[in-house]
């Protein structure tokens, strides 16, 4: 599964691909960064719905975008995060800087 994007106001939802590694995250980073620049994005929602594999390249991808959002005064969150991906994100300490949801909270849908 490939990635795709949805923009609602200043919120960018990144529908992540099924496998996130160094190979697949390169293009994902480039496209995400281009949208952040051009569309005045202040909130990024990483949607893990389709993700079955992620290594530390995915952690670098998320933290890199987090740094950009922090610089712009925005926020980042992760939704639809399954058990395995929760383990991977927790191990990397990502939950310390972004909110991680098992499902898709109402609030994030409304945006």
């Amino acid at each position: 599964m490939e990635h795709s994007f949805t923009i609602t106001g200043t919120t960018l939802t990144v529908h992540l691909p099924s496998e996130i590694d160094h190979h697949s995250s390169r293009q994902l980073c480039q496209e995400t960064d281009r949208l952040i620049q051009r569309r005045n994005i202040r909130r990024i929602l990483f949607d893990f719905h389709d993700v079955s594999f992620m290594d530390s390249s995915g952690i670098g991808m998320i933290l890199g975008r987090y740094k950009t959002m922090r610089f712009l005064g925005g926020t980042v969150m992760a939704v639809n995060v399954g058990e395995r991906m929760q383990r991977v994100l927790t191990l990397a300490g990502v939950y310390k800087v972004i909110d991680i949801y098992e499902g898709a909270p109402e609030q994030s849908r409304l945006l």
Binding site: S56, G60, M61, L91, A92
Partner: peptide, 14 residues
């Protein structure tokens, strides 16, 4: 600068 998290060896270990 290439978005590396420096977590590769930590993941292998874990």
């Amino acid at each position: 600068e290439c978005d590396r998290a420096g977590m590769g060896f930590a993941f292998m270990e874990a």
